[in-house]
């Protein structure tokens, strides 16, 4: 009888232990974001996940940070990445990952001509579409003017033989945008974040092999996260010994408003 009682108790204990190891189903965090710190920081937030022990922060597929308090539901991402995500965990279990895609749209090998070029088919302006792609635009056609984000000026440059210029600097202005640029060295792939506001000019000398940060400010009101955009541009070549010059560039455009990150590799 005692033996039977012992077996029963042991079986009951086993059942309790097995029951305690049951898998926990975690909801995937629903991540929202704001851009802060003049575009340097992506502030993530989400609602606390039931049964979670904490959260993993995933940057470009790698868990870079662990938040071990389930009540902590914000994270300031300051290291640029193409994709940021948040995943809840409980013990060994993890939820799905909600991701914010910060991959810039790249347009490669775009040919733009200095505005002293007499050929109307040689476009001197360029602009970014809403999907981030970049197209060249003829400045001689006034119907293009509202879409011009920059133009290359070798007719009356102020900084070098050929400058990248804001459309609002032309007289008469092509539009009212106050777009700026800054020389950021020569490492296009290594430029993960565009220069901070304060170091830009609406006219910058182009240089063969140089990389430029782009600051597109349609409202001409300084940095904000409503409709400002950043990007980077690599000058692949400048041909011509004198004006008119022909310039080939690759550009990357960050679709997240106000965010300066531009991770392209």
């Amino acid at each position: 009888m005692k033996k039977l009682l012992g077996l029963t108790l042991a079986f009951a204990a086993l059942l309790v232990m097995v029951g305690c190891d049951g898998e926990v189903t975690l909801d995937t965090p629903d991540v929202t974001y704001t851009v802060t710190d003049n575009g340097a920081t992506l502030s993530l937030s989400w609602i606390e996940i039931v049964d979670a022990d904490g959260y993993y922060i995933i940057a470009d597929g790698v868990a870079t940070d662990t938040l071990d308090d389930p009540a902590t539901v914000t994270f300031n991402a300051t290291v640029p990445a193409a994709v940021y995500g948040v995943q809840a965990y409980a013990g060994e279990d993890v939820s799905g990952t909600d991701e914010i895609d910060c991959t810039p749209y790249e347009t490669t090998n775009l040919t733009v001509y200095g505005n002293s070029d007499p050929d109307p088919a040689h476009h001197s302006g360029f602009g970014f579409n809403t999907n981030g792609s970049c197209v060249t635009l003829a400045i001689s056609d006034s119907t293009n003017w509202l879409d011009i984000d920059y133009y290359f000026n070798d007719a009356n440059p102020t900084h070098g033989p050929i400058d990248i210029v804001s459309p609002g600097d032309h007289i008469p202005p092509y539009n009212t945008e106050d777009n700026a640029s800054a020389n950021s060295g020569t490492d296009y792939a290594g430029l993960d974040i565009a220069d901070a506001p304060g170091s830009y000019s609406t006219q910058t000398a182009l240089a063969d092999g140089a990389v430029f940060s782009l600051f597109i400010d349609p409202d001409a009101d300084g940095w904000d996260a409503e409709n400002d955009h950043f990007g980077k541009m690599s000058v692949l070549s400048i041909t011509g010994s004198t004006a008119p010059y022909t310039v080939t560039v690759t550009v990357a455009y960050q679709l997240v408003e106000g965010l300066r990150w531009c991770v392209t590799d």
Binding site: P118, D119, D169, H170, S201, Q203
Partner: peptide
């Protein structure tokens, strides 16, 4: 063969730092 466009007209304002 393109018809030459008129020379670039207009001027340029002083640059703005931002």
């Amino acid at each position: 063969k393109p018809v030459p466009k008129p020379p670039a007209k207009g001027g340029i304002k002083p640059p703005t730092q931002k």
